[in-house]
Amino acid sequence: MSQLFRPEEHIENVLEGVRRTMFDDSGLRLEDITGVPGASGRTAAGLPIGVDRIIMQPGTAFPLHVHEGAHLLYVLNGLGALHIDGKDYVLRTGDSIYVPADYPHGVQGPVNDEELEFLAFGVPHHPIDSHTRMTIVREEEAVMEVLSK
Rank of each mutant, 00 (worst) to 15 (best):
residue 115 E to Y: 08
residue 96 S to W: 05
residue 119 L to P: 06
residue 111 V to C: 05
residue 73 L to I: 12
residue 18 V to C: 01
residue 127 P to H: 12
residue 101 A to Q: 08
residue 80 G to Y: 04
residue 87 K to M: 13
residue 21 T to M: 11
residue 34 T to A: 10
residue 55 I to R: 00
residue 132 T to D: 07
residue 38 G to K: 05
residue 135 T to W: 03
residue 67 H to L: 13
residue 115 E to T: 09
residue 69 G to N: 03
residue 16 E to M: 11
residue 55 I to A: 03
residue 122 G to R: 14
residue 22 M to D: 04
residue 49 I to V: 15
residue 40 S to C: 06
residue 54 I to W: 02
residue 110 P to A: 15
residue 123 V to Y: 00
residue 79 L to W: 07
residue 129 D to T: 01
residue 117 E to V: 05
residue 140 E to R: 15
residue 70 A to D: 08
residue 45 A to C: 00
residue 145 E to F: 08
residue 57 Q to W: 00
residue 68 E to L: 12
residue 129 D to W: 11
residue 54 I to Q: 10
residue 9 E to W: 12
residue 100 P to I: 11
residue 120 A to F: 00
residue 51 V to T: 09
residue 47 L to E: 07
residue 95 D to P: 00
residue 77 N to C: 02
residue 36 V to I: 15
residue 11 I to Q: 05
residue 141 E to M: 13
residue 60 T to A: 05
residue 53 R to Q: 13
residue 4 L to P: 10
residue 66 V to C: 11
residue 105 H to E: 00
residue 116 L to H: 06
residue 15 L to N: 11
residue 16 E to N: 09
residue 133 R to C: 02
residue 55 I to C: 06
residue 15 L to R: 14
residue 76 L to A: 02
residue 131 H to S: 08
residue 8 E to Y: 10
residue 25 D to S: 15
residue 4 L to M: 09
residue 31 E to I: 03
residue 134 M to G: 05
residue 27 G to D: 02
residue 62 F to W: 09
